[in-house]
Simulated assay, not measured.
Amino acid sequence: MNELLALNNIECEYDGRLAVCGLSLRVNKGETVCLLGPSGCGKTTVLRAIAGFHPLSGGEILIHGTTVSDPHFTLPPEQRHLGMVFQDHALFPHLSVGNNVGFGLRGMSREQKQTIIDEMLELVGLTGMGDRYPHELSGGQQQRVALARALAPEPNLILLDEPFSNLDIELRERLSGEVREILKHRGTTAVLVTHDQHEAFALGDAVGVMHEGKLLQWDTPYDLYHEPGSRFVADFIGQGVFLRGTLLTPNTMETEIGMHKGNRAYPWARGTRVEVLLRPDDIVPDPASPLQAQVVQKAFRGAEILYTLRLRSGGRVLSLFPSHADHALGERVGIRVQADHLVAFPLSENHSPKATPAAFI
């Protein structure tokens, strides 16, 4: 794959403070990547810097190997050949859908322009709607128009800024999958910023987790979930709880619910006090197990039920049971640990912000 976008140790200031600190990443042609993090982490500032709307105070941004931003130079946004999709669609209310899609097309005949508009509307599933106006469309349809408009000039890169946050959850999940299919079908390179893990995981070939202006981990969704590289990433991604334990050997730990052997070797000394991350899929039902826990909360999820279980010590874990196993609050159930990816951190790393046990954004 050819490298299309490179950010080399960039820094950005915002309101007199350093909002992005030494961030580097690479995006290959045809990839869809996501920057994920809580509000105020700097992800939108990075996107604005790529677009040319925000200057750099350090580092450089290259597109196709050519520098477009450094502390002394910023190529204007209109010369970067980028497409943008915004949170609020940013459609022109006085223009028809077709004219919105064709707004960025220049230097071609009316027939050529109409051909591209028709192709784009077909691509995003809005064939025959070119004469309508934005206010006549649903929110999801408006976002499809915004995507078609961004794709029509065949840009080097599409930038998506929280594009689905104004939509309801069901539509957001469906549209994010559709957008990924459209981008892959076109071979379009895209960078998305979002605070929503569902969107990032549904769209991203690679996802970068940001915190306080820094890129903490750049990885596949699978590895972010199963192999988090820091306490913050482990806490921020997905659901889970931390149980305190002790390192017995480089890959074996003991907690209040038993001894666990993992898939990695840790370099810490024997006896190091640790916190072990246990995801809901690490705790499986086992009626014959001597390890019993009490149901204190439950959330029905169709095929599964997410249980919050209280251990004898008072600690809690999360577990996913098949939904036909409908246990009542207060009932005791048998469980066992089946953690193929055993993730742990020394107690000294507990300075990171801590999420609630069910914090899946």
Rank of each mutant, 00 (worst) to 15 (best):
L4Q: 10
L4V: 08
D15P: 04
G16V: 10
L18Y: 06
V20R: 10
C21Q: 12
S24H: 07
L25S: 10
R26I: 07
N28F: 03
T45E: 05
I63E: 07
H64K: 11
N100K: 05
G130F: 02
S138L: 08
S138H: 03
R144M: 09
L151C: 08
A152M: 12
P153C: 05
P163N: 04
S165P: 08
N166S: 15
E173L: 14
R174P: 06
R180W: 05
R180A: 06
E199D: 14
F201L: 09
A206T: 08
V207G: 09
M210G: 06
H211Q: 11
E212L: 14
T220E: 04
A234G: 02
F236V: 11
T249S: 15
M253S: 09
A265Y: 10
P267C: 06
E275R: 05
E275H: 05
A288V: 01
S289W: 03
P290W: 04
G302W: 08
Y307M: 14
T308E: 13
R310S: 14
R312C: 12
G314S: 05
L318H: 10
L318T: 12
S319W: 07
S323T: 01
H324L: 12
H324R: 15
G330D: 03
V343R: 14
A344V: 14
T356D: 11
